[in-house]
């Protein structure tokens, strides 16, 4: 019985977060537009030579996705913190880490998944071909959930602080580096004829690791911040 009630609680948490976000569609769109604009800035900054753009495309798209998913982290817990919902959540009998997981899932559905869906468009603009685009899509699919999971720890640690938004980036960006390396590296490795199998496996392993450890760390961080 308790298991089903836990499932119910986490599902209602997910539905609630999604419904709240749907009432403010602008927030979701802001993240997506940020992603599109940042990537579009690169050809303007480094020049329109297709050959060079193709070379830097995976890295550019990955860095932009990383920044975009970080941009929305500030709101992950802060709304619930301000209206007192978070305190209620902390008092619930269910393990906090599971509830955190459904919040992170909602965050990824709203800020990570749109980026993944729109990334082929940008990849095409930067001159990647079909195979590379599919590979990039897969790496983003595996990597962005891990970004949301790691970011949640940063969001919980900086809860309610002045200048929390900039601070999150200082805490979280160094921890994003392994995912960036293997995410962007997959396409380059494929282009170099080395295959991307290893990169994808390692990205998958990162996702599993963060899936296990990040919710626990986030729950601990929330308890510290709300103490």
């Amino acid at each position: 019985m308790s298991e089903s009630s836990l499932l119910l609680a986490s599902r209602s948490m997910l539905v609630r977060d999604l419904t709240l976000a749907m009432r403010r569609k602008a927030d979701v769109l802001t993240t997506l537009f940020f992603f599109l604009i940042v990537v579009s800035l690169f050809p303007l900054g480094v020049g329109p030579q297709m050959e060079m753009l193709r070379g830097i495309a995976p890295g550019v798209i990955w860095v932009a996705a990383l920044l975009a998913s970080m941009l929305s982290l500030g709101r992950l817990f802060s709304d619930d913190y301000q209206d007192g919902t978070l305190e209620q959540i902390l008092l619930e009998p269910h393990p906090l880490s599971v509830l955190v997981l459904s919040k992170v899932l909602a965050h990824w559905l709203l800020s990570g998944l749109p980026l993944v869906i729109f990334s082929p468009l940008l990849a095409m603009q930067l001159g990647l071909d079909g195979e590379a685009i599919v590979l990039l899509l897969i790496t983003l699919m595996l990597g962005t959930p891990a970004l949301s999971l790691i970011g949640a720890v940063g969001a919980a640690l900086t809860l309610g602080l002045r200048g929390g938004g900039v601070l999150i980036s200082l805490l979280v960006l160094p921890l994003y580096i392994p995912i960036l390396i293997f995410g962007a590296g997959a396409v380059e490795s494929q282009n170099a004829g080395l295959g991307a199998q290893a990169h994808l496996s390692i990205l998958g392993a990162f996702l599993m690791l963060t899936l296990v450890f990040a919710p626990i760390s986030t729950a601990t961080a929330l308890r510290i911040s709300m103490d």
């Binding site: 720890v153 640690l157 160094p174 921890l175 392994p178 450890f213 760390s217 961080a221 510290i224």
Partner: peptide, 12 residues
């Protein structure tokens, strides 16, 4: 809070 960050960083 910074202690937790240090532990997470050390794993990383």
């Amino acid at each position: 809070a910074s202690g937790l960050l240090a532990v997470v960083g050390a794993i990383n």
